[in-house]
Design a protein around this nucleic acid. Structure first.
Lengths: 121, 121
DNA sequence: CGGTATCCTTTTAGATACTG
DNA sequence: CAGTATCTAAAAGGATACCG
């Protein structure tokens, strides 16, 4: 490390935990998918779209380890995932984020396209 | 892809853009660091702690491409980064997330430790 | 149907040295 | 001080085949 080895006011901050939890490709989408109702593995996969079974299982396990998601085997081949009480506390932050994306996503895409067009000239 | 190739109600959702933006190790921390005031490269590095120069520059470039961060060269070797108007709209979602981490981070760590202890028995 | 195992590719990030 | 270039390691994710 060539920079700062010592602590900083962001270095032991709970924000880092939040980033650790949501900084992957599927966790937010999974939590969002479970925020309305419990869902089964295949149901989640279809809902989200584009995620492989392996990675979906990995993501669910990870969220279980954080205590955010609960796994219940209702019958031999019928597994249902739902949010825990702790997991439900994350729904509001995620909704704020998705609301932001809804409101400003277009502006971002427009900016990127304008920048790309400028590079071609 | 063995799962769902076709669209789903989450597949073309703006949430994916939000996830794309924040799903890396440093972007949220950088945005948070810039949310109070403009800062210089080295200042940001010291504030965040643990990020290499290369990756910090990469992160800043990426946030510039999204139109969230602005780079200003005040003098030959004095570069200042700040949030754009668009970038400032992301401050509230990030603050909600950090507030969540402050309120529930301990519960998550406790849960993980309890689960780890259970595995040792 | 849910899950695992294996293999492979891509992405991300860290170390280090160098430049203006 | 800010940034780049190169190399390498580690992590994340995808394809596929297989199991109970």
């Amino acid at each position: 490390m060539q920079n700062v080895a010592g602590p900083s006011f962001l270095s032991d901050c709970p924000t880092r935990l939040a980033v650790e939890i949501i900084s992957d490709k599927w966790s937010v989408l999974v939590l969002f998918g479970l925020s309305q109702q419990p869902r089964r593995h295949g149901e989640l996969a279809a809902l989200i779209g584009g995620v492989s079974r392996k990675v979906l299982t990995q993501t669910l396990r990870r969220l279980q380890e954080y205590g955010l998601v609960e796994r219940r085997e209702e019958a031999p081949r019928q597994v249902e995932y739902s949010l825990t009480d702790l997991g439900r506390t994350l729904v509001e932050p995620i909704e704020v984020l998705t609301a932001w994306a809804r409101d400003h996503g277009e502006a971002i895409v427009d900016f990127q396209e304008a920048a790309a067009a400028a590079r071609h000239n």
